[in-house]
């Protein structure tokens, strides 16, 4: 068994309002995820231990197949870990049932995907409010307006995804991810399908969400320029975190 890698934020890691928060919002301990392909076991995560603190914007970088998407799925509660622990806001995902993880995703996690993943039949407005509906607290017009204004969507809300540009679709997806005030936003290559200009806009918005709303963000990317938008970058290779550095 490989030795687990344990990466902690450096001493000058960012904090909300300059105050050092000691409790991580997300913590993994010796996290393993092994896929079974026929009779062969393929480990996608090999003992990953990381900590993400509230208000951080962390990039995870690595080549294709290094396990970064798997990592995002496991820490977001979409997939069950094989062993180890994932603590999200104090809840251990690895001991949870499928329905408990569903509930946790609903209340604490916002996902942003490379392919936007908006529902094609709904307009932008309903794609965003869908998250509030599933969240169960009903429509919060104030929060909706804040989010729509912040992401510059006010004029595009009546449009369906097919009528929006890639950059606009990703902004709607961002709005959907944060409208229910999740503890953490997990972004899986959010600029992977965008041109340079739209990429910069989306990355700028992620940074703005982090700075203005204190939104904790974990972003996966294989692009170093995109990764540089985060406070720090975790490098992954072959299912392990090999280096964690602060860029700011």
């Amino acid at each position: 068994m490989l030795k687990p890698t344990r990466i902690f934020p450096s001493s000058n890691s960012p904090t909300l309002a300059g105050e050092r928060l000691l409790e991580p919002i997300l913590q993994t301990e010796n996290l393993w995820k092994v896929y079974r392909q026929g009779k062969v076991e393929v480990p996608a995560l090999r003992g990953v231990s990381i900590e993400i603190f509230p208000g951080e914007f962390v990039s995870i970088m690595g080549p294709s197949g290094c396990g970064k998407s798997t990592m995002l799925h496991v820490i977001g509660g979409l997939a069950q870990a094989t062993s180890g622990r994932v603590l999200l806001d104090g809840n251990d995902l690895t001991t949870m049932s499928d329905s408990a993880r569903t509930l946790l995703r609903r209340h604490k996690v916002g996902f942003v995907f490379q392919r936007f993943n908006l529902l094609p039949t709904l307009d932008a407005y309903h794609n965003i409010t869908l998250a509030q509906h599933i969240h169960g607290n009903g429509f919060d017009p104030h929060r909706f307006q804040v989010v729509a204004d912040l992401l510059g969507l006010s004029g595009r809300l009546k449009h369906k995804p097919s009528e929006l540009s890639g950059g606009e679709q990703q902004r709607v997806a961002l709005a959907r991810a944060i409208v229910s005030e999740p503890k953490i936003v997990l972004a899986d290559e959010p600029t992977g399908n965008l041109d340079t200009k739209s990429s910069e806009a989306v990355l700028g918005l992620l940074r703005q969400l982090n700075q203005d709303l204190g939104q904790t963000i974990v972003m996966i990317t294989h692009n170093p320029e995109a990764a540089a938008y985060g406070h720090r970058v975790l490098h992954m290779r072959d299912g392990e975190v090999v280096d964690g550095s602060s860029v700011h």
Binding site: G76, R105, F113, L119, A131, I134
Partner: peptide
């Protein structure tokens, strides 16, 4: 299928 995946990622339960 993918839309169902999206709903699940948003925390939609089986019942939903």
């Amino acid at each position: 299928t993918r839309e169902i995946g999206v709903l699940k990622s948003l925390g939609a339960s089986k019942g939903y």
